[in-house]
């Protein structure tokens, strides 16, 4: 089993993702430079948070054209696990690997704080160690996390179980007050049709040790490890009820 953490020049959560896989999960992990165009030998790829190429234009708008994203697309089509966190989620949407877009936060300001997420689908390779409806305390830190998609797309995501996490109250209620950025239907994370590509705005790598205030994010990495142990990466899929 081998994880890869993609490094764009402006990635700044790459070290954090690497640390969690290496030192908390104790799994093999390597860096993947953004100019790499193939991902042979990897079983899971993490697109970390940050500002890929500065993102002065639009988050992920340049990253989608990078060599590594071509490789990530092929890797995902082959069934490999791809987790996009924050900027990684933005890049997955820009690249068309996930539907929708992340607009500027409703409050127009950067927001960094702990939020609560309700687990909407716990049958994915990213969530199988979580229980249905489990509420996780995980921080967000972004300027553009306001998820948008057309009503049809949102309906489709919901009906196919592809909304993975929603912003909620600590008790798991979904309401406006629990929505930190104006995201449509409180959506914090979604996956692709095959269920092997997930993007989320909150940072599970910042919530994987209790010393940092929460270890709730660890379940996501544990799920990925379990998925990789129990199934070769090429046959991960079909976990979403289509």
């Amino acid at each position: 089993m081998k994880f890869g953490v993609v490094v764009f020049p402006g990635s700044n959560c790459d070290h954090d993702a690497f640390y969690v896989i290496d030192r908390v999960m104790r799994q093999p992990v390597e860096w993947v430079w953004h100019e790499t165009d193939q991902l042979k030998g990897f079983d899971a790829i993490i697109l970390p948070g940050g500002f890929s190429y500065g993102d002065y234009l639009r988050t992920g708008a340049i990253a989608r054209f990078s060599p590594v994203m071509k490789a990530v697309r092929a890797f995902a089509e082959g069934g490999g696990l791809v987790l996009g966190i924050c900027n990684g989620f933005q890049i997955l949407c820009e690249s068309g690997l996930l539907p929708g877009a992340l607009m500027r936060n409703r409050g127009l300001k950067f927001v960094c704080r702990h939020v609560y997420l309700r687990t909407e689908n716990n049958a994915l390779p990213f969530t199988q160690r979580l229980s249905a409806g489990q509420v996780l305390k995980i921080p967000i830190a972004h300027m553009e996390g306001n998820y948008y998609a057309s009503a049809d797309t949102l309906d489709e995501l919901e009906s196919q179980g592809r909304v993975v996490f929603r912003y909620s109250t600590p008790e798991g209620a979904i309401d406006e007050a629990a929505n930190p950025n104006g995201a449509a239907r409180n959506i914090a994370g979604i996956c692709n049709r095959a269920g092997n590509v997930m993007g989320m705005m909150p940072h599970p790598e910042r919530a994987s040790e209790s010393l940092l205030g929460s270890a709730d994010g660890r379940g996501i990495f544990e799920s990925m490890v379990k998925a990789l142990v129990s199934a070769p990466s090429s046959r991960l899929a079909e976990t979403v009820h289509d």
Binding site: N12, R23, K109, F110, L212, G213
Partner: peptide, 27 residues
Amino acid sequence: YQQYDHMVRTNTCILPGADAAVIRIKN
């Protein structure tokens, strides 16, 4: 402080607002 990313690098043991900031040294 909510407008500042105060958690990146995953070392922040005490969130802003306390008497002092605390940053762990990994390893």
